[in-house]
């Protein structure tokens, strides 16, 4: 069982609060102070595809308003675990899950749980930008519109695009097709689309793997800003990226959670030899 001790979490939260205070509004700071507790709690989670165990007895707590990165070689189960958090794996018929996976104390896989509502609160950004074949405006407004949003859509779209650091680049062409944007802009548009639903958690599955270094840097800056408002869980192959943007890092290998600790510890003095070997490129 790998969990972060309460003291370490408190210390990390305090460090983090000090680090981001200048950039967040007072409201966001207060929100954060009240909300640094555990948001996602996995206890002995095992996920199978038929007979194959993709995730094996994973236990970890993901705290609020932090960026938690999950790293590991291909096939280690990191994306499967991420997708389990907002039940994206439900679409795979042979998938089964055991153990307990909670979001703010509620069982994500309870029969009473509404998967659609869960996905509104736990948004997802995928590896490849996947904008809808619609205008930039409609891409961002779409989720809110179909969920019966009664507020000012223009304001909602503008705020979401601003939070996604895209407003300045698209404000004069909101009625143009989203496909006219560059890959990096399309990915930020997808982040704006997720944000527009005012989620609590943002799951990101390799969000920069299809982007060039400049677009990647913009997304990384954005992730750093987003944690003031959201809890971010990031799956990445890019270890430097995990080191740059995350507060906490979990290392998975062959379905097991090997180590979970503060990111600077994982990348300077990991406790487990397998983590050491992976981050230094000795295997994986």
């Amino acid at each position: 069982m790998v969990t972060m001790s309460e003291t370490r979490l408190e210390r990390k939260s305090a460090i983090n609060a000090a680090r981001i205070t200048p950039r967040v509004s007072r409201q966001a700071t207060l929100h954060q102070e009240n909300d640094s507790r555990i948001v996602i709690q996995a206890d002995c989670v095992t996920i199978r595809y038929g007979d194959f165990e993709a995730v094996k007895k994973v236990t970890l707590d993901i705290p609020g308003h932090q960026v938690t990165a999950i790293i590991g070689p291909s096939g280690c189960g990191k994306s499967t675990f991420l997708r389990a958090i907002n039940r994206m794996n439900d679409f795979i018929p042979a998938m089964s899950i055991s153990g307990s996976l909670n979001y703010r104390g509620e069982n994500i896989y309870s029969p009473k749980s509404d998967a659609v509502d869960l996905r509104r609160r736990i948004g997802m950004v995928f590896q490849k930008p996947n904008p809808f074949p619609k205008t930039i405006f409609k891409n961002v407004a779409w989720g809110a519109s179909i969920n019966g949003y009664r507020g000012d859509l223009n304001e909602l779209v503008e705020n979401a695009l601003k939070q996604a650091a895209l407003w300045g680049e698209v404000k004069d062409k909101l009625d143009q097709s989203a496909f006219a944007l560059s890959g990096g802009q399309q990915q930020r548009l997808c982040i704006a689309r997720a944000i527009a639903l005012q989620p609590d958690v943002l799951l990101m599955d390799e969000p920069c793997s299809a982007l060039d270094p400049i677009a990647t840097a913009k997304i990384e800056d954005l992730i750093d800003d987003l944690k003031a408002h959201y809890t971010v869980v990031l799956v990445t192959h890019n270890m430097q990226q995990a080191a740059r943007v995350s507060d906490l890092t979990a290392f998975m290998y062959m379905g097991e959670l090997v180590e979970f600790d503060e990111t600077d510890t994982i990348f300077t003095k990991p406790n487990q030899q397998r983590t050491q070997d992976y981050i230094t490129g000795r295997f994986g």
């Binding site: 270890m239 430097q240 080191a243 990348f267 300077t268 003095k269 990991p270 983590t275 050491q276 981050i279 230094t280």
Partner: peptide, 9 residues
């Protein structure tokens, strides 16, 4: 090489 862990140390 942007080393980490024991290589960085």
């Amino acid at each position: 090489y942007q080393p980490v862990g024991s290589d960085l140390r």
